[in-house]
Design a protein around this nucleic acid. Structure first.
Lengths: 355, 355
DNA sequence: GGCAGCATAGTTAACGTTTTCTACGCGGTG
DNA sequence: CACCGCGTAGAAAACGTTAACTATGCTGCC
């Protein structure tokens, strides 16, 4: 009681003293895993109230084994894509009684490694990595090593929206059908009658997201016996600015394109802006489609045709699988479906002397 | 070494054994706060590498006192407003060598209290609460009590974007000039010549954000000797749907309004949609302004005039002030400025026989 | 040559919990 | 009446780390 008055953080011992019992009994009342007589329980509870006692989670974790913590390593907190996955992770973690650590690396791969190390110190039960990464052999090997490191300390690496890193590495993988979505939306454009479709964002062939989406684009062409014209394929990053700039480039080329597929919705939004500026109507003069189905897409004018990713479910599944990896031991690799969302930015190409 | 092979998590003792030194020496090498001979240091570092050792953050916190953790309690992770503040919090926390815990309460006040309790268990150095709250006397008193609770365990309550809870409560407050921004944007509309300006989102007079913004709106009218017409003031929530619905209501009333101020940008986006549907041009027929300056606003058509809030700086300042509250002891209450961002959705009212 | 003082290393006791293991009554059974 | 078992409680050890002491050689000064 002296401690409580002195303002120090009350401990189990202080509560025990105040209630006239032993520390063990206090622990048992709080945990409720051992029979304690009603009168004792009440005295303890009373003392807990009086002292405004809260348990020390670190001390509990030290002896109890588990920190009940899930870590979430992501490129950025802003941006609808990551935020929604993050929301899924946070919700599922909360639902499972875990608290959620979050770190951002802003695209810096070394920083990402540092963060994983930090999470290993924190003894997170699961470390969820979000977003596409490089797929160079070195990087994959490094990931596999990290997976083993984490496993050794009882933690679990979870790859969310990123392809697996080999069968031997102990990791949970929750991805979505990136290539299939790109195939589907390209297929849709082709079925509308488009034959000259541009692709914006094909840079970094080693980036898993980039290559999967481009591959779906290419496969849809092959399926219809069409060739992909290299003149219609340009690079760039995932942001709006890139879509805007690359569209200008394409327009300057006079390629005869009747549709553009942006590698992300943000890119597509830049495409729309550039076309608008050039006096071209969407979808009458040119069709535009994106990828991700971020909330913004429905509000663009025209509303954007795009590929829907189950963002939130991706995050939830990641946590669920990782925490119950004993039960779900069989399928620690989940592939969620994507589907095309048809809105107003796509239409059949108008008959005109294109080219 | 036997342990390492057995797969258990290596401890300082294991490293000490492998390096042929004592645990203390290992600790000293890792902390670098005590002279250790080069050869010893190398042997220890070598053993750390070999065993793939990471320190146990819980154990360190237990004895060291600090968890180096900042908690971040927010309504939602999605939505540009919270995400940007969150980004600021995370960045500053990282910059200060802290890790960041994040929890969402989805607007449930009881859940918020639970989370604060949880963060108290976690021994977070600072607990940052984001977003407006109720300002009923009970709620304020409860907050003050929480502030004291947290202080007692060495933690610090930080109110971010929420007004202070009284001078006696030990809390750090970082807010922005909500009322001033509303005043400024309303003043701007009036100076353009608007006299009949509607306000959408005035429900919940006890909500701090709502009341501050409405008060700024009203003060601007008073400053120009104008009255606020109750017919032009409607309630609703902070989302797009509300803006859409309430605009329909206003339009049905035939109020002769020439401008609408939405309580948030999301509301303004709903307003734009409803006006577009009604065949009204913005800003020719009617001007629209919002509040928050979320990234979406620049992409709406027309681009939205709004009030800019320094979201990210809000989050950064929150963490900075709380962690260095000894240095910044004087000003633990910071008020950041807001300013009007003029875009394309506002213009002088057209001369026409408006009712 | 004795001793102060420094550089380096080890011992031991915390930190706040939980988890054995042990102890004490007491009612029921053989 | 001795003893088993059950319900309840406490004592002590353990978790992995750090900090406060203590210990050992050395260098160098008087």
């Amino acid at each position: 009681m002296a401690r409580a008055i002195a303002g120090g953080r009350p401990t189990v011992k202080d509560v025990a003293l105040a209630a006239g019992v032993s520390a063990t009994t206090v622990s048992r009342v709080l945990a409720g895993n051992y029979p304690v007589s009603a009168s004792t329980r009440n005295r303890v509870l009373r003392a807990v109230q009086d002292l405004d006692f809260v348990i020390n989670a670190q001390a509990r974790a030290l002896v109890g084994g588990s920190t009940r913590t899930v870590a979430f390593v992501v490129r950025d907190l802003v941006g609808p894509l990551f935020a929604y996955i993050g929301q899924g992770v946070e919700q599922q973690a909360t639902a499972e009684g875990r608290v959620c650590l979050v770190c951002t690396h802003h695209g810096d791969a070394d920083r990402e490694l540092e963060l994983i190390e930090l999470m290993r110190e924190q003894q997170a039960e699961a470390v969820v990595l979000v977003g596409g990464g490089l797929r160079t052999p070195e990087h994959v090997e490094r990931m596999a090593q990290i997976a083993r490191s984490l496993e050794r300390v009882g933690s679990r690496l979870v790859l969310c929206g990123r392809p697996p890193i080999g069968p031997d590495a102990p990791a949970t993988v929750v991805e979505y059908d990136n290539e299939g979505g790109a195939f589907a939306v390209t297929n849709y454009l082709i079925s509308l009658g488009h034959r000259r479709i541009a692709f914006i964002g094909a840079a970094e062939p080693n980036h898993t997201t980039t290559s999967a989406r481009f591959e779906g684009f290419a496969r849809a062409h092959r399926a219809h016996g069409l060739d992909v014209d290299d003149n219609l394929v340009v690079g760039g990053t995932f942001d709006r600015e890139s879509g805007y700039r690359q569209t200008k480039t394409l327009l300057a080329r006079d390629t005869g394109m009747t549709a553009i597929l942006g590698i992300t919705d943000m890119v597509a939004s830049g495409i729309l802006a550039a076309l608008h500026e050039a006096g071209l109507r969407v979808p009458e003069d040119i069709s535009v489609a994106g990828y991700d189905d971020i909330p913004l897409s429905a509000d663009l004018s025209p509303a954007l045709t795009t590929v829907h990713i189950p963002h939130e479910e991706l995050g939830r599944a990641a946590v669920r699988l990782a925490l119950h990896r004993d039960e779900y031991a069989l399928d620690q690799h989940l592939m969620l479906g994507t589907h095309v969302v048809i809105r107003d930015s796509t239409a059949p190409p108008e008959e005109r002397d294109a080219r």
